[in-house]
């Protein structure tokens, strides 16, 4: 089950991982739920821009992220709220707060747009980090696909446990499409549930990188070429460096 992830690379990778990357880029270029394909690809470009933003470096280095004056270095395509959301989630995710999230929404971004953009950040960061970690060149961004967003809002979306609305497993409806592999799906799984298509796109990629949900709590088993403790050392160290409490 081997394939080559990128043209010109001699490094063989799992076929499902290579396919997941191809599917993910295609999904990013397609019209989403609240954003057009053009805006989604523009968000992907801004995500890459954020990684070298000097203002983000200052924010990251500051004792408090809230006291830093200045503006983000942006490509200039997206609005102020989108840029702030993308740059902060890329550059300093461990120091976000509910009041900050509300301030982004107050600048004119809808909660659906917010969640869809967070899903894009998570996907692009995963894709680009993977190619960089493998020593491969960054993939060119895809051409956006024409079409209108679906503007689908799940009837069961409610702001309760998190800063943004979630669809709890018991509130998911048939109209939402496939949502949860299990009614016990953890909160990390529910994070993007307000935008079901973003949730599906994200997990189709993430499951190939880490492991599908049914294996997560089977600690005596590894479906990867490294052991489960080796897997979890990597996971724990990366999460700790991001100051992620989960």
């Amino acid at each position: 089950m081997s394939a080559t992830l990128f043209a010109g690379s001699a490094l063989a990778v799992r076929g499902d991982l290579a396919e997941a990357h191809q599917r993910a880029w295609k999904a990013i270029a397609a019209p989403g739920t609240w954003l057009t394909g053009e805006r989604r690809v523009a968000a992907a470009a801004e995500i890459r821009r954020a990684r070298s933003c000097a203002h983000c470096v200052l924010i990251k280095a500051a004792l408090s992220p809230n006291g830093v004056k200045g503006v983000h270095q942006t490509l200039g395509v997206l609005g102020e709220a989108e840029v702030e959301l993308i740059h902060r989630v890329v550059g300093d995710p461990g120091r976000l707060s509910e009041s900050w999230a509300q301030s982004v929404l107050a600048r004119g971004l809808s909660d659906g747009e917010y969640v869809e953009i967070v899903g894009l950040v998570a996907m692009v960061m995963m894709l680009d980090t993977c190619t960089r970690a493998l020593g491969l060149p960054e993939q060119p961004l895809p051409a956006p696909q024409a079409g209108e967003p679906t503007r689908y809002r799940p009837a069961g979306a409610r702001k309760q446990a998190a800063w943004l609305p979630l669809v709890e497993p018991q509130d998911a409806t048939e109209a939402d499409g496939p949502m949860y592999p299990s009614p016990k799906a953890g909160y990390i799984y529910r994070g993007l549930s307000m935008v079901p298509q973003s949730m599906r796109d994200y997990w189709a990629l993430a499951n190939c990188h880490y492991m599908p949900g049914q294996y997560v709590y089977q600690f005596d088993k590894s479906i990867r070429a490294i052991t489960r403790p080796q897997t979890e050392i990597l996971a724990a160290r990366v999460s700790a460096m991001h100051q992620c409490v989960y």
Partner: peptide, 12 residues
């Protein structure tokens, strides 16, 4: 885990 942390932290 560059993706997971961002969902967890941005959605709160």
């Amino acid at each position: 885990f560059h993706g997971f942390v961002r969902i967890a932290d941005a959605i709160g």
